[in-house]
Amino acid sequence: MTDAEDRPDFLETADGRRIAYRRTPDAGAGAPGVVFLGGFRSDMTGTKAAFLEERCRARGRAFLRFDYTGHGQSSGRFEDGCIGDWLRDARDAIAALTEGPQVLVGSSMGGWIALLLAREAPERVAALIGIAAAPDFTLDGMEAAFDEAQRQEMARTGRVALPSEYSDEPYVITRRLIEDGRDHLVLRAPLPLPFPTRLLQGSADVDVPPERARILFDHAKGPDIRLLLVKGADHRFSGPRELRILDETLEEAIAAAREAGR
């Protein structure tokens, strides 16, 4: 792929956001298309996003991947963002760049975003695939793990820096991120998922432990929800075996969505 082919397009929003995206058009496969929703501090160049784009292109299927604001090549600063902002980015990208019901594939935080989208507009969702989905992680994963010094730091400065296994730079967690996260929880109220839903989870995931997948599985209500626990897979879920499972799951979910008339 040339540099020109690899450069993203940009969606300019009415309020000045500039969302970087790559879109593969439908080339004969027909609906539904596929939308990849990335994780916290990830971007659309990751292994899973690129793999899904290649597989969709090979099958003539529409595909969309994009960067939330403050991520990748989109506008804004990461530290200024929160779940509600990134949900709005996803909502705007899907509204402007896709047609009809879509298969939402959400990785980690993207799984939370996918669930929020599904809750507010289930008619736009043909199927949903969560990869180590992390709903409510700002409360259950971050805030719940703060020690007393971090709580005091947050109260005093409005921010806490946490170490990252994926970057030399620490994560800066802001008061706005934590408070906004409380406004977007999905595990504290009914969560209907009236479409094929597939939850993929690695047994060796230390960032989103397997019990979190079970909590989501038990909490969500729907006619066709399945949880697959993959022994030895970690949070990235991007080795050859895991990508093969993801590909097979996507095709099975699309077939189930069509059978269900979605």
Rank of each mutant, 00 (worst) to 15 (best):
T24F: 00
D168M: 13
R159I: 04
M154N: 00
L193C: 14
S164T: 03
I129L: 14
R65Q: 10
D205K: 07
A155G: 09
D224W: 00
V103C: 09
A90H: 02
S238C: 15
D67V: 09
L229F: 03
G158E: 12
C82D: 14
A189S: 15
L117H: 09
F51A: 14
V186F: 13
L243C: 10
F51V: 00
I173C: 05
F36L: 02
L116N: 01
T47H: 08
A256C: 03
A132E: 08
F63R: 02
I178W: 02
E248I: 00
V34L: 02
E99R: 12
A257I: 01
E242T: 08
L187P: 14
D3M: 12
D43Y: 09
G81P: 06
A49C: 07
R159Y: 05
L243Q: 09
A204Q: 03
M44W: 07
R151Q: 10
A161H: 11
R182W: 12
E79K: 14
L185C: 12
H71V: 06
V172P: 12
L162V: 15
E259D: 09
E53Y: 05
F195A: 03
H71Y: 08
L162D: 06
A257N: 07
F40A: 02
D80S: 14
G222V: 11
S167Q: 10
F195G: 09
V208I: 13
G110N: 03
R17S: 14
D247E: 15
R188T: 15
S74E: 03
D85N: 13
A144T: 07
D136H: 08
M44C: 11
L87H: 09
G39D: 11
R151A: 06
F217C: 02
L246S: 05
